[in-house]
Simulated assay, not measured.
Amino acid sequence: MSGRPLDVLEASLGERVTVRLKSGDEYVGELGGYDQHMNLVLEDATNAADSDETDTATAESVEDTTIIRGDNVVSITP
């Protein structure tokens, strides 16, 4: 896999990814699309709560399609 960010996103289309935001929130879902600004479209996403705050990690379901603005993204991992 190439190290260029858009190439990595292209290779991850249709795969489940974890997206960490500047706020500390993490979303887990299938990468459905992206654009040149790294705005992301996640399908069937969940918002995972920080496991340090509670004894067990919890997940909150969100809309079927979630759009995340690229300038809020800190990291994207498979």
Rank of each mutant, 00 (worst) to 15 (best):
G3W: 07
L6P: 04
N47G: 13
T46S: 12
V8Q: 14
A11N: 10
P5A: 05
A11T: 07
S23R: 03
A57W: 01
E43W: 09
T18K: 14
T56Q: 08
E60F: 01
L13F: 01
D35K: 00
D71G: 09
D44P: 04
L31C: 05
L42E: 06
L31K: 02
A57G: 03
L31Q: 00
A48N: 07
T54G: 06
T56K: 04
V62G: 04
D50W: 06
L31G: 04
A59C: 00
L21R: 07
V19N: 03
V74D: 11
T54A: 12
D55T: 12
L6W: 15
D25R: 12
D25P: 00
M1T: 05
I76P: 02
D64G: 12
R4A: 09
P78F: 09
R4Y: 07
E30F: 04
R69Q: 15
G29A: 07
T18L: 14
A49S: 02
E53C: 03
E53F: 08
V28F: 01
T65I: 06
G33T: 05
T65W: 02
T65K: 07
S2W: 08
V8C: 14
A49Y: 03
D55Q: 10
H37P: 04
D35F: 02
L6T: 02
R69M: 13
S51V: 12
D7S: 15
V8F: 15
V73S: 00
V73D: 01
